[in-house]
Design a protein around this nucleic acid. Structure first.
Lengths: 150, 150
DNA sequence: TATTGTTATACTCTATAACTATA
DNA sequence: TATAGTTATAGAGTATAACAATA
């Protein structure tokens, strides 16, 4: 799929298409922005989870993400290779691996957060603050999520 | 990626995530609804183009879609195997293949359109008509597309 | 027997580049 | 030389199912 040209007009008025196209475009933009850091969106997602819940087991991470178990193994392998995370044995249950960020992992996450914020800012540039709020409210409603701090 | 569970809350407030997640969810829902017809979204897209422009060359179709040339060959191969489209020689330029819908192709397209409409209706059920218009306007603006019939 | 993590594998999707036949 | 279409191939990304270790 290419995002360097606008979609043909009749398609572009179909709400389903607009949703899907914008979503993929934003996701691709974010992935491209993350690439210079050597990270893919999945890495970012797992770093974010580990920042919030240090020592989470791999099963925890699977449950809190949308990544399946075998893919999670690979993602954590890669984070370890990059020196951003490490698996530690759980002495109470030797099947479990508690996953922790390293100092480098925390730094990488901070950098990636800035990239994410900048990416969002770029992607949303055409909309003003009020429009962004409206869009967020509509997309949450569409997804069946409750109103925020209602 | 799984869409059978809601996304974890902190993610779900990020506009970029909401866009991407809803977009992929809607696209996956549409693909699943099309599957009983033996079609994938790309097939639907090409059927739609052929309905609008019978006899389009494969290059035309590439230009009017977001499908690259080699993938287009495969998609049209499959439409021919399903008996929904056929390539015809262009006597004026024997490199060109004019692609036409068969009678079965027109019927399949009509059925697929109903599925698409029903899918859109399902996906958009949480939003009323005014909210849908607002969402369409915001997504078009986000994509840098002009206001419709402005 | 069930669970955690892992590995091996297969599958889907798509892009790249080389090739043909025409022009 | 350039273009339309095709083929072969390789790559990314992900899912499936079997497996080892531990509970």
């Amino acid at each position: 799929m290419r995002f360097d040209q606008p979609p043909p007009e009749p398609l572009a008025n179909a709400l389903g298409f607009l949703l899907s196209w914008n979503g993929q475009r934003v996701a691709a933009h974010f992935a491209a922005a993350l690439e210079p850091l050597g990270l893919r969106p999945q890495h970012f997602g797992v770093l974010r989870l580990l920042e919030a819940a240090p020592g989470a087991t791999q099963n925890d991470l699977v449950g809190r993400s949308m990544i399946d178990p075998s893919t999670m193994v690979k993602v954590i392998d890669e984070l370890e290779e990059l020196g951003l995370a490490e698996r530690r044995m759980d002495p109470a249950d030797r099947r479990r691996r508690a996953v922790h960020l390293t100092a480098g992992g925390r730094e990488a996450f901070a950098r990636a957060m800035k990239v994410a914020a900048q990416t969002a800012e770029d992607a949303l540039a055409p909309l003003d603050a009020g429009e962004r709020d409206t869009l967020r409210r509509l997309l949450r409603k569409l997804a069946g999520l409750p109103e925020p701090q209602g």
